[in-house]
């Protein structure tokens, strides 16, 4: 069978998520033709966006009301219908891909390779284990490779220059298992945490949700995103989707500023790939300093406002 990849696009029916572009780069490294599946409702615009990515053979557009929200049961049934044509099924290792792809893998009798950070060949990949404290190189022996891709580990593919054909596909009857009730999405004008160039994160050292304002002020000044440690989320200072770490979001910005974060291994797993790390903490023994390029020991409530002033003054 000729090698061909079906890539599940992550989108919200109006925009293609940045994670999709990074996943394309990983799929290109695996080789073979690449088709993108855009499944949703009223998402033809997303399909056009996907078709403009260079290196894509075809965009499969599946539109149905049942696909408005990416429910795993429905998406898996849809992909299973398309699967015979493909040797590789890939999706970003975001909550979207993590939810749906293992369901597809099991139905295809394939052992998924999760959260890859590098592609060695069409069947061999590198993935972090033990919260990133080890990297495993694994080869899949399954006929169909099912793979989730860590978006921050790959450059994003270009968004222009491609002219892939768009094929509308018939949506089969989808199993009415789970149904969407509602969602509570955090609205913010800030850049997204997993794709921002600069991330400012706060930890337990902030002491309250109100005090997070100084983190936000610094982030806004730098046009950055706001993140948090698990401790800060558990304490209720900020919502769950701010969490950076082994089980939260994995970020790899150009600059990561950790404020009042001690640096548990579970947090480091989510940010150790950042290009430059700054740590501000009053405890000079805090493990965060071991991974920081620039460490500043002191009271964050003094340092952060000073930092804001200094950056403003120097512009």
């Amino acid at each position: 069978m000729t090698q061909a990849t079906l890539l599940l696009a992550e989108h919200d029916n109006s925009e293609l998520a940045p994670s999709t572009y990074a996943t394309v780069t990983a799929a290109v490294a695996m080789g073979g033709a690449i088709d993108i599946l855009v499944a949703g409702d009223g998402c033809a615009g997303v399909a056009s966006t996907a078709a403009a990515i260079p290196g894509i053979r075809r965009v499969q557009l599946a539109e149905a009301e049942a696909l408005r929200h990416p429910l795993a049961e429905q998406l898996a049934a849809l992909v299973l219908d398309l699967a015979p044509e493909y040797t590789h099924l890939v999706a970003p290792a975001t909550t979207f891909g993590k939810n749906v792809l293992p369901r597809i893998a099991a139905l295809l009798d394939s052992q998924q390779v999760s959260d890859i950070v590098a592609v060695e060949s069409h069947d061999t990949f590198i993935r972090p284990i033990y919260a990133g404290n080890a990297l495993a190189t694994v080869r899949s022996t399954d006929g169909k490779k099912v793979i989730t891709v860590r978006p921050t580990a790959f450059e994003r593919a270009d968004s222009h220059g491609g002219e892939a054909a768009i094929t509308a596909i018939d949506v089969p009857e989808l199993p009415p298992l789970s149904t969407f009730v509602d969602e509570d999405l955090n609205q913010s004008d800030r850049p997204q945490l997993d794709s921002a160039r600069i991330v400012v994160s706060g930890g337990r050292g902030l002491g309250s949700g109100e005090n997070f304002r100084i983190i936000e002020e610094l982030a806004d000044l730098l046009n950055g995103a706001v993140g948090a440690s698990r401790a800060a989320v558990d304490a209720g200072y900020v919502p769950n989707d701010y969490q950076v770490g082994q089980t939260g979001k994995v970020v790899a910005p150009d600059l990561y500023i950790a404020v009042g974060i001690s640096g548990a291994i579970q947090h480091l797993a989510g940010m150790a790939g950042s290009k430059v790390i700054v740590a501000i903490n009053k405890d000079e023994e805090a493990p965060i300093f071991e991974v920081a390029d620039y460490g500043l020991v002191g009271d964050l409530f003094t340092i952060v406002p000073e930092l804001v002033e200094a950056i403003r003054a120097s512009r």
């Binding site: 394939s110 052992q111 284990i129 990297l135 080869r139 399954d142 790390i277 000073e306 200094a310 120097s314």
Partner: peptide, 26 residues
């Protein structure tokens, strides 16, 4: 179904420096 060919430790980050104040950091 998977063959683990190798498990390795990630590249350690190079040791950083302590800065003395905000001015030096900026």
């Amino acid at each position: 179904r998977l063959h683990t060919l190798r498990v390795s430790a990630p590249e350690p980050r190079k040791g950083g420096v302590r800065v003395t104040d905000v001015a030096e950091l900026v």
